[in-house]
Amino acid sequence: MKISVELFGVAREFSKTKYLEFNFSKSCKIIDIKKKLYEHVDNKFNGNLNYKEIIKSSAFCSDKDQVIKENQILNKNQIIGIIPPIGGG
């Protein structure tokens, strides 16, 4: 199963492309995708703690713009988005 993670906001710094793809042998949950993102940051950015904090505090949404909870099971190829918190003033 392939999950494509669209990168929004500051999460776009995670890749030169607008998304990352991860393969899973069976169903997964958002917590599993977060683990893959942490591994990506460890491998590509020497474990950048700021990037890990972004992953930790981000929301994830479906291609239908619905928030996906951490324990929701994903069981088909799909595109989800990582939505980092936005600061403003």
Rank of each mutant, 00 (worst) to 15 (best):
A11D: 01
N77T: 07
I83P: 04
N71A: 09
K52G: 07
Q66H: 06
Y38F: 15
S25P: 10
F45L: 07
I30R: 06
V10E: 12
G81A: 11
K29Q: 10
L74V: 13
L20K: 08
A11R: 06
I83L: 14
K16L: 05
N50I: 06
N71T: 09
R12P: 01
Q72T: 14
P84Q: 08
P85H: 01
I3A: 07
K29G: 12
I82P: 10
P84C: 06
Y19H: 05
K2V: 04
K36F: 07
I82E: 01
S27Y: 05
I79M: 11
M1E: 06
V67G: 10
D42I: 00
I31E: 13
A59F: 08
L49P: 12
P84M: 04
S4L: 11
G89R: 14
I3Y: 01
S4A: 10
F45R: 06
D32A: 04
E53L: 15
K18S: 12
D42T: 03
S27I: 02
K35H: 08
A11C: 08
L74R: 08
S57A: 04
L37C: 11
I79C: 09
T17L: 05
I73K: 15
Y38K: 09
P84A: 04
E70F: 09
I83R: 13
V41T: 13
E13Q: 14
N48E: 02
Y19L: 03
E13K: 15
Q78G: 09
K35E: 11
Q78M: 15
Q66M: 05
M1N: 13
F14N: 01
K44G: 01
M1I: 13
N46Y: 02
K69D: 02
E13F: 07
I3N: 03
I86L: 14
F8C: 05
K64A: 03
P84G: 06
K44S: 05
I79K: 13
A59V: 03
V5F: 11
F22L: 03
E6K: 11
G88K: 14
P85M: 02
C28A: 07
N43V: 12
S15D: 03
K35R: 10
D65A: 12
K29F: 00
I68D: 09
F22Q: 08
R12L: 02
T17K: 14
I31G: 02
F24S: 12
G47W: 00
A59H: 12
F8D: 03
K34E: 02
R12I: 00
F60G: 07
S4T: 14
S57W: 02
K56M: 04
K36S: 10
C28M: 09
G81R: 14
F45V: 02
E70L: 14
F24G: 12
D65R: 15
C61S: 12
E53Y: 12
S62E: 00
Y38P: 10
M1G: 10
F24W: 04
V10I: 15
K26P: 03
S58G: 07
F14A: 01
H40E: 08
Y19E: 09
F60D: 01
I83V: 09
Y51K: 14
N77A: 10
E39T: 13
L37G: 08
I54W: 02
E70C: 12
K34G: 00
